[in-house]
């Protein structure tokens, strides 16, 4: 491992102190400023129980890929395209009923470059849309039950984390995840995955991908808080989850989930 456990803890303590200071300042400022913008939507803190939900509105996503970039920068994820905590897929359904899916570089550069659109030129498209993907933080996570050393587990908030000091790199969890949300970090040789930006949500902030989403296609919050965006959307819109037949009970809900998305 590149960082020893001792250094890891030391850094952690420093970070925690910094985090507390930062949180208090920001909290104070918020009260003073009383700014009301889309960004000031915060997670009710502290989080109790497993009531956090992530909602993705497929009808809103524009495929800009800012979320993918933010995730990689925020969480120190390797920039190569085969390592992703979150990514954006593009679904294109032609009039002949064919479904084409792609996700160039995980969508990190968006979908506007010419080489990404060549094969869609002249295609008779019935409909097309983007589907952002991330760890579903399943209530019944298959990845957790298969880990031979219990290095991956659900926190009390229901977020699935990987203990980098315990993971042996067997990658059974990578096989067991039906959503392809896990990968082996090539630097530490341990498995990595989306944490819903655990270090942010525990400070009352939004995950980085939600933070940067320009159209509000990604929403995050407490389903038990009636004023939160997610509880409002879940109340008013029909939501669905990916691969419900597998019984994993995802905590990531999708609005406008099209048939054939998996």
């Amino acid at each position: 491992m590149l960082i020893s456990r001792r250094d890891f803890i030391k850094g952690g303590v420093a970070g925690a102190v910094g985090g507390v200071v930062l949180y208090n300042t920001s909290h104070l400022m918020r009260t003073l400023a009383e700014t009301r913008s889309a960004q000031s939507l915060k997670v009710a803190s502290p989080i109790k129980g497993r009531s956090l939900r992530f909602v993705v509105d497929i009808n809103k996503c524009i495929g800009c890929g800012k979320c993918v970039k933010a995730c990689k920068l925020e969480n120190d994820v390797p920039l190569e395209p085969e390592f992703n905590r979150t990514w954006v897929e593009r679904y294109t359904i032609t009039r002949s009923g064919e479904t084409l899916v792609d996700s160039p570089n995980g969508g990190i550069d968006g979908f506007t470059a010419d080489y990404m659109n060549e094969k869609y030129k002249g295609l008779d498209i019935r409909k097309s849309f983007f589907v952002p993907k991330l760890c579903n933080q399943c209530e019944k996570p298959p990845c957790v039950s298969v880990c031979p050393v219990a290095a991956t587990y659900a926190t009390e908030e229901g977020v699935i984390l990987v203990d980098r000091n315990a993971c042996i790199g067997c990658r059974y969890c990578v096989q067991a995840c039906p959503y392809g949300a896990r990968f082996l970090d090539p630097r530490y040789k341990v498995v990595d995955k989306c944490t819903w930006c655990y270090h942010r949500i525990t400070k009352g902030l939004l995950p980085a991908c939600v933070e940067v989403c320009p159209v509000g296609a990604r929403m995050f919050g407490d389903i038990e808080d009636p004023n939160s965006k997610v509880s409002q959307v879940i109340r008013e819109r029909a939501v669905a989850v990916l691969k419900p037949e597998l019984g994993t009970e995802p905590m990531v809900y999708y609005v406008g989930l099209e048939k054939g998305v998996r």
């Binding site: 395209p81 085969e82 390592f83 992703n84 990514w87 897929e89 084409l100 899916v101 792609d102 996700s103 570089n105 995980g106 993907k133 990578v174 959503y179 392809g180 949300a181 896990r182 990968f183 082996l184």
Partner: peptide
């Protein structure tokens, strides 16, 4: 189509 993480 493969999920991006399935490349390896």
């Amino acid at each position: 189509f493969l999920y991006p993480n399935e490349a390896a």
